Computed example of a mutant assay.
Amino acid sequence: MNRGVSWFNITSIVLGFAFLYLPIVILIIFSFNESRLVTVWGGFSTKWYSELFNNQGLMDAAWVTARVAFVSATVATVLGTLAAITLVRFGRFHGRTLFSGMVYAPLVMPEVITGLSLLLLFVAINFDRGFWTVAIAHITFSMCFVAVVVQSRLVSFDSSVEEAAMDLGCPPAKTFFVVTLPIILPAVVSGWMLAFTLSLDDLVIASFTTGPGATTLPMKIYSQVRLGVTPEINAVCTILIALVTIGVVTASLVSKRQELERKRAEAAAKAQ
């Protein structure tokens, strides 16, 4: 009975992972295809990566996407961290329910509604659409993800460390930057990486809020795929997959290292 259940679980996991990742593996393989026909294997070649870097339209879209992702992830991390601190440290205050609802609303709001509402806002205030409207839109929906990640770390945070620092004469602001921030830094870095990845991946909201000269890479890929998949598209998607994978692995390693250092410090403190 247990053996049957075990084989059933293994088979389910294998089929599930194959369904999720086999198309990605096929895309990566065909990005090294010699043939221009993406469904016919013509031999191994890296020429499409050279062609990709000579494609000025894709390069401009990639540069816009990278700038938008960096700016939006950085601002969203700052605002999301402040929101998480407010929700965890200030307890129940007047308007807390409204504040938490506004912070977490983008988590459950359909992207079409978010993009349309932001478009109507920018039109109402006569704000020219372009790079900054896309960045503001990405900050709006990615800030809540950062708040969730940082809040989960602050809930288990030992506030006695901060109290000890302030008892020794450390001002509250310095206590945050010297004591609190280094401890919650893995969560902050993870939140930044998550916001950066979400910005790289966004298509719907950027389509509503973009303007002249602010075409992002997902929008460029989508517009070209509608006319047919080309080997350059496979190549640029492979590079995006590699960047996201490197970022996730790096954030995971940093988080594990910080966690080990924290445990060592706690063990040393208990030994003393």
Rank of each mutant, 00 (worst) to 15 (best):
L116N: 08
R129D: 01
L119P: 01
S156T: 15
W132M: 04
V189P: 00
L200V: 04
V161P: 01
L82Q: 02
F196T: 06
I184P: 10
L119A: 06
S117E: 04
P106V: 12
A84L: 01
G191V: 08
P182L: 00
A214H: 11
G169Q: 02
L87H: 00
P110L: 13
R129A: 03
D158H: 15
I85R: 13
F208Y: 14
T209A: 11
V88T: 11
S199R: 03
A165G: 10
A187E: 09
L87V: 09
V188K: 01
G95C: 12
R153W: 02
P182N: 07
M193Q: 07
G91V: 03
F196M: 09
R153M: 12
F176C: 14
M102F: 12
I85L: 14
V155R: 15
F145L: 14
S152Y: 05
G101Y: 05
Y104R: 00
E162I: 14
R89Y: 00
T97V: 14
G101M: 09
V188S: 05
T210H: 14
A135C: 04
L82M: 09
V112F: 13
E162D: 08
V108L: 09
H94G: 11
R89E: 01
S117C: 07
T175F: 02
K174R: 10
F90K: 15
V148S: 10
I113H: 09
P186W: 09
M102Y: 05
A137F: 03
G213D: 09
S207M: 15
S160Q: 14
L200F: 12
V204Y: 14
L87E: 06
L119R: 08
F145A: 09
A165E: 12
F177G: 07
I125H: 00
L198D: 06
A137N: 03
S207H: 08
A147K: 00
I183L: 10
F90A: 11
P171F: 13
A124R: 10
V146S: 08
S142P: 01
W192M: 04
P171D: 13
L116D: 05
V88G: 06
W132F: 09
L203G: 08
D167S: 13
F122W: 01
P172S: 13
L98A: 15
G101P: 03
W192D: 01
V148D: 05
D128N: 03
H94S: 13
P171I: 08
L118H: 03
M143I: 08
H94F: 15
V108W: 02
A83L: 01
T209P: 08
M109P: 01
F157D: 07
P106E: 12
V149I: 15
G95W: 05
L168D: 13
S156N: 15
M102S: 07
T114K: 04
A214K: 09
A147N: 08
E162C: 11
L168C: 09
I85K: 15
T180V: 12
F145V: 11
F141S: 07
V103G: 09
D158T: 12
L198C: 08
C144I: 09
A195S: 10
H94P: 04
A173M: 07
F131P: 00
L194C: 05
G115N: 11
G130F: 05
F208H: 10
G101C: 05
L98H: 04
V179A: 06
L154G: 13
A214D: 14
A165F: 03
L98F: 15
